[in-house]
Nucleic acid binder design. Structure first.
Lengths: 218, 218
DNA sequence: TATCAACGGGACTAAATGGTCCATGATTTC
DNA sequence: GAAATCATGGACCATTTAGTCCCGTTGATA
């Protein structure tokens, strides 16, 4: 018996360009659909149709719906972090924070406040349902908050923020305001409460600035 | 043809004590289950079993699942508003706000941060799925915020808050911090981020106090 | 106390949905 | 260019789940 066979197939799985593209198409479709309808309200047939694939392909690339959802959590997390890195990586001043705020508000206003945050919505829907998804979301939120707190650290080191400012707590507060703002904006179908929430958090950070740039607007 | 019949049955539906009790039992069970599993992940069979009723009773009291969910939205809204009225109706000072904060934090810590806010979770799950549910939730959030802003108005009228404080915006900011805090706490299974978020909002309100009671703790 | 509608139990149905399977076409590798 | 494996289409299956129906019981009212 040729026992060389045993060692030969070191390649557990070949993967072609086409396969990669199909997988990407599925994730992209799932991302779109589940963003507007929610995860549980989106069926695999919806995804199959929207991605122009078939059942067997879904199950070729993902073990089951739960795995697809978990992959989506990672996919969306990577997208958000990539986007946020762009807006936060070079943050060094309060005005940079304001620009960041404006970008988020404007993006959400294009949806009339609807749908909320891609990560926050999933966190609500999945946290009590899929421990692994929750864990990934938690890590993603932590990474996102770190982008913010790193920026605040730079502001503090650069002399813009007072020494008694706590970048980690400020980042958590800002993230909570953002997520709560998304939630209220979604319920209202109006971006306004998100603006108020972010402005509150920004005012709070402002109170730690070394030289307050003018009076807080009444 | 006795046309008196047409006017006679003014009573479109008789209702007995037992019927009321059954309906209540169904709502109570749905409330419990959907709080921990979410609305879409809870089946009518789950509700039927937990409420010790039968299919025909569910459909006797509610036209379909959507109607049950809508009734639950009102039911839970009434519960939350009743609870919040107790904590906010006599709010007249900043320390009262702190007590209110502590009560919410303690209640959530009993769940180890899990499940989030009964209203907020429904808002995320239903806002893009059931326009009527969203509308009711929006009204409930508005009533809740009004309890807060009324308290802040009393604080302002009583001289505790400066005249340039905007009770409505402060209430919206506080509500967003609360909801965002619930969301992050749920993802973390830890009440800590909720505390940080609420403390940020409270510090912000504190900055509008007429006589700051001591330094902000570093 | 007779009547009739509300109330209740639970089997049943239809549709949706997650998941399987197999034949066939496309690629990679030797 | 042949073997092996990946990729794909789509029919098919099993389960779950919302919703229906029938018939017996309870209880309010005349």
């Amino acid at each position: 018996m040729s026992d060389e066979r045993v060692a030969a197939p070191t390649n557990p799985r070949r993967i072609s360009q086409r396969g990669i593209a199909t997988r990407e198409r599925i994730l992209e479709a799932a991302n779109r659909l589940m963003f507007v309808r929610g995860v549980n309200a989106t069926t695999l047939d919806d995804v199959r149709e929207a991605s122009q694939t078939s059942k067997s392909q879904l199950y070729h690339h993902f073990a089951d719906k739960q795995e697809l959802v978990r992959a989506l959590v990672r996919y969306r997390g990577a997208l958000v972090l990539q986007r946020e890195r762009g807006g936060l990586e070079r943050l060094r001043s309060f005005s940079g924070l304001v620009r960041w705020r404006n970008a988020l508000v404007q993006a959400n206003s294009l949806n009339y406040g609807k749908y909320g945050c891609g990560l926050g919505s999933m966190a609500v829907e999945l946290s009590d349902q899929d421990e692994q998804a929750r864990s990934t979301l938690l890590e993603t939120f932590a990474a996102w908050e770190k982008l913010i707190s790193d920026g605040l650290h730079r502001m503090r080191d650069g002399g813009a923020l007072r020494q008694d400012a706590d970048p980690e707590k400020l980042a958590t507060g800002l993230m909570a305001a953002l997520q709560g703002g998304y939630l209220l904006a979604n319920a209202a179908h109006d971006v306004a409460p998100m603006e108020v929430a972010l402005d509150m958090a920004l005012e709070h950070i402002k109170s730690f600035l070394v030289e307050p740039s003018g009076e807080p607007r009444g």
